[in-house]
C-alpha cells in the first residue's frame, strides 16, 4: 500500500471511534447538587459599565488635578481633535476587548492586542509630530525628558480603573488570549490616561507628548498584560 491520499486519510480519521467518557466526578456531582440559576454575561452592558465607570473616575481625577493653564490659548480644533482621538482609542479598545463578535462567546482578544500596539504607536508618533504650544506652555526639551515621570504616573493611575474593571467583567471568559485582551484593556486605560494628561499637562514638547503621554498607552498595556490574565482565565 502507498501513503494514503487526502480523502482516504480523511476517512480513516473520521472513522476513528470516539472513546466513552467517564461518569461525572464526585466534586462535579456535589456542585451540581446545589446548582442554581446563574446570570450570564451581557457584554454590551459590561462594556458600558467599564466605559462609564472609567469616565467618571477620569473626570474626578481631572477635577483634582485641574485643567492645563494654557488651555485658553490653544487651537480649539487641535484640542478637540486630539481629545476625540484619545477618547476614541479608549472606547474602541475597551469595546473590542470586552464585546465578542455576534454569536461568539469570547471577545476578539487578538484584535484587542493588535489594536493596543497600533494605538500605542499612533499616539507616540502623533504626540511627537502634532504638538501645539502657547506662551503659557512649558517647554523642557529633550534633555529634561525625565520630568515626564509625574505624567507617566498620572496616566498609569488613570488606566488602573478601566483595566481592573475590565478584567473583572472578563473573569472566566478567556481560556486563551487573555494576555492579548488584557493588553487591549490596558491600552484603553492608557488612552484614557492620555486624555486626562492632554487636558491637564501644559508641557508642549513633542518628545514629552510622544514618549510620555503616548508612552502611557504602551506602559499600561504591558502592565495589564502582565498582571490581569490570571483573573480572566476560567
Amino acid at each position: 500500500m502507498s501513503a494514503p491520499r487526502d480523502y482516504e486519510l480523511d476517512e480513516l480519521l473520521r472513522d476513528a471511534p470516539l472513546p466513552d467518557p467517564p461518569p461525572l466526578g464526585d466534586l462535579l456531582e456535589r456542585e451540581l447538587a446545589s446548582l442554581g440559576p446563574a446570570t450570564p454575561r451581557n457584554p454590551r452592558r459590561d462594556a458600558g459599565l467599564v466605559i462609564g465607570v472609567s469616565l467618571v473616575y477620569a473626570a474626578a481625577l481631572l477635577a483634582v488635578l485641574r485643567l492645563r493653564r494654557d488651555l485658553d490659548g490653544l487651537p480649539v480644533g487641535w484640542m478637540i481633535a486630539y481629545s476625540a482621538a484619545w477618547f476614541a482609542g479608549f472606547a474602541s479598545l475597551a469595546w473590542i476587548a470586552i464585546v465578542p463578535a455576534p454569536g461568539a462567546m469570547m471577545p476578539r482578544w487578538r484584535m484587542a492586542g493588535v489594536g493596543a500596539a497600533i494605538a500605542a504607536t499612533m499616539f507616540i508618533a502623533g504626540g511627537m509630530l502634532l504638538h501645539e504650544s502657547t506662551p503659557l506652555s512649558v517647554s523642557y526639551g529633550l534633555a529634561n525628558l525625565h520630568r515626564g515621570h509625574w505624567c507617566l504616573e498620572i496616566g498609569v493611575a488613570t488606566a488602573i480603573v478601566p483595566a481592573t474593571v475590565g478584567a473583572l467583567v472578563l473573569r472566566g471568559v478567556l481560556p486563551v488570549g487573555s494576555r492579548w485582551a488584557a493588553a487591549g484593556l490596558g491600552a484603553a486605560g492608557g488612552s484614557l490616561g492620555g486624555l486626562v494628561l492632554h487636558l491637564h499637562c501644559p508641557i508642549a514638547d513633542g518628545w514629552h507628548l510622544g514618549i510620555v503621554h503616548g508612552g502611557v498607552v504602551a506602559v499600561s498595556a504591558l502592565i495589564a498584560a502582565l498582571l490581569a490574565p490570571r483573573r480572566m482565565s476560567p
Partner: peptide, 16 residues
C-alpha cells in the same frame, strides 16, 4: 467541565 461549571456566568445568551 469543572471549570466550565464554575465559569458558567461567562456564557453569553445565544452564543455557541
Amino acid at each position: 467541565f469543572l471549570k466550565v461549571h464554575r465559569a458558567r456566568e461567562a456564557w453569553v445568551r445565544g452564543a455557541d
